[in-house]
């Protein structure tokens, strides 16, 4: 087989894998509330991800916030975002934006658990929850 053919074959395999993956990922169409969606935009506009992780991904100056909604609660989120800490700046969000942000963190919390202690290690080196 010549080299060009091998490359084409790999590209086709890659594109099929991509299409298959897109089709098999979960979808929320219709269920998603606009509040969660705009909360996500507020998260992004304020670049919370530069200091915080979701599912372990993000910047590392602050803690992972995947499950902060269920572990610390809504009040902690509200007061930290409004007043900040000695390290975290205060974000002067209006009431609506703050509510949306809380709704977003609530939906992230409902999507799964990121705490590494909640996983089990299998014999083949893989992990499961």
């Amino acid at each position: 087989m010549n080299k060009g053919k091998i490359i084409w074959l790999m590209v086709i395999l890659f594109l099929s894998y991509t299409a298959f993956l897109y089709a098999s990922l979960p979808s929320d169409s219709g269920i998603i509330s606009t509040s969660v969606y705009s909360g996500k935009q507020i998260w992004q506009k304020n670049n919370c991800g530069s200091c915080h992780q979701v599912y372990g991904l993000g910047g590392y100056l602050g803690p992972d916030l995947t499950n902060v909604y269920s572990t610390k609660g809504e009040t902690v989120i509200r007061s930290l975002v409004q007043y900040g800490t000695s390290v975290m700046p205060s974000f002067k969000l209006d009431e609506k934006d703050l509510n949306d942000l809380v709704m977003y963190l609530k939906s992230v919390d409902a999507s799964g658990k990121s705490d590494p202690r909640s996983f089990k290690i299998n014999y083949d080196g893989s992990i499961s929850q």
Binding site: L25, P26, S27, D28, K40, V108, S111
Partner: peptide
């Protein structure tokens, strides 16, 4: 929105 609405879908494609 089709890709962003679900956090798991969004993050999977982002890291892909």
């Amino acid at each position: 929105p089709f890709f962003a609405e679900n956090i798991i879908k969004d993050m999977t494609i982002q890291w892909k």
